[in-house]
């Protein structure tokens, strides 16, 4: 833990030094990196607080039984339907999907459901797919979804089974109040 903290701090210092040096010497690429950084930092700062408010509420209000019934060991194939539906409506894509997936798993969701959710959260977002169809044509979107979603479900199920058999554990120390 201590070592990773040192690594974090060193990264920040190195980055700050690089940016500072770029500004002083007027290196355009460094300045462009800084512009990218601030643009995405603002996006992230807007996106994460409401997402984590919802995750906090989820941790406190949604019972373990509900999650287990729908995404847990007794849940059956319908869990993939819920996972895809949840993914399609997750705003913010992958950035938000990881913490949500972690919270779901913490409440008893199987690996297979969690993995299907995470992968689909970036693949089947509704607003994004509408943009896609309007730019590349509906046929492109339909082929992409028809191929990717079944493959994601199949691979998540296989990967989930493998992880269950190994008794894989997610990194400790980030469990929510459950």
């Amino acid at each position: 833990m201590k070592r990773s903290r040192l690594f974090h701090i060193l990264t920040y210092v190195a980055f700050a030094a690089f940016i500072g040096w770029s500004f002083v010497t007027g290196r355009e690429q460094g300045v462009a990196v800084w512009r990218n950084f601030t643009t995405f930092a603002v996006t992230m700062l807007k996106l994460l607080p409401p997402a984590f408010v919802l995750i906090g509420l989820f941790e406190v209000w949604v019972s373990r039984e509900t999650v287990e019934r729908n995404f847990g060991h007794a849940s059956g194939p319908l869990k993939y339907f819920w996972a895809v539906l949840l993914a399609a409506t997750t705003v913010g894509g992958t950035f938000v999907a990881f913490p949500v997936a972690h919270a779901l798993h913490g409440k008893g969701a199987k690996f297979s459901a969690v993995l299907a959710y995470v992968s689909c959260a970036s693949l089947v977002m509704v607003p994004m797919t509408i943009i896609e169809a309007s730019i590349l044509g509906p046929k492109f979107s339909i082929v992409r979804l028809l191929v990717s979603v079944p493959l994601v479900i199949l691979s998540s199920s296989l990967l989930g089974r493998y992880l269950d058999r190994r008794g894989y554990l997610l990194p400790a120390g980030k469990e929510g109040a459950s």
Binding site: T11, V33, N36, F37, M44, V60, G176
Partner: peptide, 26 residues
């Protein structure tokens, strides 16, 4: 309680997001 969970979780993962941002901006 929920808001405390929010703050705690957000604080834990912030270094990860910061690294992501640094990589992304390059």
């Amino acid at each position: 309680q929920a808001l405390q969970v929010t703050v705690r979780k957000l604080r834990r993962i912030l270094p990860g997001y910061l690294h992501l941002l640094i990589l992304l901006s390059f």
